[in-house]
Design a protein around this nucleic acid. Structure first.
Lengths: 149, 149
DNA sequence: TCTTAATTGGTCAAATTTAGTCAAATTGAA
DNA sequence: TTCAATTTGACTAAATTTGACCAATTAAGA
């Protein structure tokens, strides 16, 4: 297991123990793991980014710190917002965009996204006349998203 | 017996001993068998492919690894059987039966089953004229099942 | 109050460590 | 002999680790 993984795990455990927020000093943490300080930044950038659902704040100077909090994702809000934004019909690229955005925001698992994408594909809808497909896509997409709540 | 066979056997034994998952480092394994690293990739490609019932994950960089998992049942066979049994159209009760059977057999997670059920519902397909719905259901169901492989 | 030193954290790019790909060369069985 | 499977190695890609240099904040003196 790589050093970065150990640091990440340490931070996650600290966060779990500290009720969702971990506060550390970069230098001290680097010392604990016998690495250069910038290693800490690397870990933060690759494993505690906003995409991963974390918020990082920091301060320099005496008494400086790095604070990491797990940001609760409002899956329900994001999903409802998406459902409302989908009209009565939607074309494949737009549908793909919705799925990607929700996935990136952590409101949808990649498995679910893939599955829904499959259900929306032209290949899946080949039995219905093309004029109806975008309408079908909208209905299926909304129903699937609502089901994930 | 060819080198590739020895490597494959080694990995299978490791997997058996390690409760279904073998984790190795490519370079180290290559050294152990005195071969070039890419030989390992060859073995993975020819004997541990998904078709053979294995799942391979890997990571590069410091602390990198190759992890091989034996995937449980032949989801593939069960799923293909189901896909072939679905005709050009399927009504809601029959679709539900397929999903339930596949789920019971362990070929489908309950999450996936729920999601697919949502995509097949009359509510999801409300934008399509009723005469086309059973056809759409068949197409969507097949495509979704194939995606899960 | 200013000025300067000390204390922290941030950035970025190079070096290092792994793994992946692909096609040429080799081998071995039909 | 011939063809498919195997073996190799050169080149590529990705993740991590390290270090030099930069920026912000606070602490201490003048």
């Amino acid at each position: 297991m790589a050093l970065s993984d150990n640091i990440a795990r340490f931070l996650e455990e600290l966060m779990a123990a500290m009720d969702g927020v971990a506060e550390v000093q970069r230098q001290e943490l680097a010392s604990r793991f016998s690495c250069v300080p910038s290693q800490i930044n690397y870990v933060l950038a690759t494993r505690f980014s906003p995409e991963h659902g974390f918020l990082v704040e920091s301060r320099r100077g005496g008494g400086g710190y790095i604070r990491i909090r797990r940001v609760p994702v409002d899956r329900e809000g994001l999903t409802m917002h998406a459902v409302n934004a989908i009209g009565e019909a939607i074309d494949p690229p737009a549908a793909a965009a919705f799925l990607q955005n929700l996935t990136a925001a952590g409101a949808l698992s990649t498995l679910a996204a893939h599955l829904i994408a499959a259900a929306l594909s032209d290949r899946a809808l080949r039995n219905i006349p093309p004029p109806y497909r975008d309408g079908a896509r909208a209905g299926i997409l909304k129903q699937c998203l609502l089901t994930m709540l």
